[in-house]
């Protein structure tokens, strides 16, 4: 079980959290302007990288807040967390 570093509450066991998948997939401001392929890309395409992954977490059974995290998908180590809406930190970590 992961130990998830909630930026608001501190490290807590994973069962308190819900992972919301890849971060920085913003809902298009004008969905109608997208063609079907672009809309499908928004809805479904995911990077699923082997290495650093920017992803969303919700401290569901805690403060109830969403935040972003950078986690390595090979070691599962959390590199950092940051607020929703913030850009992905420029960290090259391959731990």
């Amino acid at each position: 079980m992961l130990l998830v570093p909630c930026p608001y509450c501190g490290p807590r066991p994973e069962v308190e959290f819900r992972c919301g998948g890849e971060a920085h997939i913003a809902r298009p401001a004008d969905p109608d302007a997208l063609d079907d392929a672009a809309w499908a890309e928004y809805l479904f395409a995911r990077t699923s990288p082997k290495g650093l992954h920017a992803e969303r977490w919700l401290h569901a059974h805690g403060c109830g807040r969403w935040f972003n995290a950078l986690r390595n998908t090979v070691s599962d180590a959390f590199i950092t967390t940051y607020e929703m809406g913030q850009p992905r930190p420029d960290i090259a970590g391959d731990r």
Binding site: A26, R27, L58, G64, W66, M84
Partner: peptide, 13 residues
């Protein structure tokens, strides 16, 4: 609830 909260916090803060 989770669906609403997700949109509220992450898309329309």
């Amino acid at each position: 609830m989770a669906h609403m909260e997700d949109y509220l916090q992450t898309e329309w803060p």
